[in-house]
């Protein structure tokens, strides 16, 4: 894809600790095109959120972006400092956090905060800013936006607050929005509403989304592309439908196979043995090898990125053969019988 708006190349984010350097993000690369939604999937500690923060330059000491590029329309954000980064952040690239109360100030009215957000980047009158705030709220499907502008955050429900947070992110029509687990804290019926709005916004406004989540079901129904992370590295990328239908990396296969909804009720679930390794104590070579059913002698060395004909890739010495025209359950059988 050459029309990528955001391209992340070999991103390295490290944290200095007493026990040495932790590589929270270790050579992550991906790209997102206009109007597309990339699902950045991983479990706790995989580095997916730190990747999102690194893109926006939100990493603070003892952490630092130690290498790589974040190219937003060709401009490398990792080289921007202070004021220059502030001008980009919020205007060309914005963020939505898991907890909307991280975005919203509890003692200011929604309108006050949104007007400030508009005027942080555009020198317009308060009246114009108010109008843009109202339009942004309407765009994310908030009923009677004028009244909401006059409300305080605590007067809104969790779902409404998250819509407001998305509306604030949209105020300057950014090219890219990074969303960090934005629906995880919401109820299913409210999550459905937000996902529907986000899909519509991406299609209508051309905003690209990087959707950071642990929830495969959300990614499967929302995203165009998937990037699976494990222990700070991208282990698999590809079109969402392809990755879900036929995962090539054993970790992705294990994750997908352990989703209960894909099995007969009461059936024993195929499980990935063990637990996520600590970043301070990663095994040499492939970090997933100790839990992997396909692991072999080569796995003590760093696995290569294998690129396949359909534009997908996997970081693995022994990728799973593609399954053609078979439902998901067959791939989980592969995982089960071999483990």
């Amino acid at each position: 894809m050459s029309d990528a708006i955001l391209r992340v190349n070999n991103l390295q984010t490290q944290f200095q600790t007493r026990n040495g350097v932790l590589k929270a993000v270790d050579g992550v690369s991906f790209e997102v095109g206009r109007g597309r939604i990339l699902g950045l999937v991983g479990e706790s500690g995989s580095g997916k959120s730190v990747t999102g923060y690194s893109i926006l330059g939100l990493i603070e000491a003892p952490g630092e972006v130690a290498g790589g590029e974040v190219l937003l329309k060709g401009q490398d954000l990792t080289r921007l400092k202070g004021e220059a980064m502030r001008r980009v952040r919020g205007a060309q690239i914005a963020m939505v956090f898991q907890d909307p109360m991280m975005t919203l100030n509890p003692v200011l009215k929604i309108g006050t905060q949104m007007i400030a957000a508009v005027r942080a980047h555009d020198k317009v009158s308060r009246k114009v800013a108010w109008g843009r705030a109202r339009d942004a709220l309407a765009k994310v499907g908030i009923p009677s936006p004028e009244e909401r502008l006059d409300a305080y955050p605590h007067q809104l429900s969790g779902g409404m607050r998250q819509r407001v947070a998305i509306a604030i992110a949209l105020l300057h029509s950014p090219a890219v929005i990074i969303a960090d687990e934005p629906t995880t804290a919401l109820d299913v019926s409210i999550q459905g509403q937000i996902l529907a709005e986000v899909r519509r916004l991406a299609d209508e406004t051309g905003t690209a989304f990087v959707w950071v989540t642990h929830d495969l079901a959300v990614v499967s129904s929302l995203a165009d592309d998937i990037c699976v992370m494990y222990a700070g590295r991208v282990v698999e990328t590809g079109a969402a439908a392809d990755v879900i239908a036929s995962p090539r990396h054993p970790y992705t296969a294990g994750l997908l196979a352990s989703v209960p909804a894909e099995h007969e009720p009461g059936e024993r679930l195929p499980q990935v043995p063990g637990s996520t390794p600590s970043l301070a104590d990663l095994p040499p070579g492939c970090a997933f090898a100790p839990r992997c059913f396909k692991a072999g002698p080569a796995c003590t060395t760093t696995p290569p990125v294998q690129t396949f004909a359909d534009g997908r890739s996997a970081l693995c010495h022994y990728p799973i053969e593609p399954v053609s025209c078979q439902p998901l359950s067959s791939t989980s059988t592969t995982y089960r019988s071999a483990s």
């Binding site: 779902g159 409210i190 459905g192 996902l195 499967s220 129904s221 879900i244 909804a261």
Partner: peptide
């Protein structure tokens, strides 16, 4: 309505028909 608004793995991109309104 609850069943319809739940995202599922493996059904592909989905037209959400979420439940209207708040709890």
């Amino acid at each position: 309505a609850l069943f319809e608004s739940v995202p599922r793995v493996g059904v592909g991109r989905k037209d959400f028909r979420p439940i209207a309104g708040e709890i």
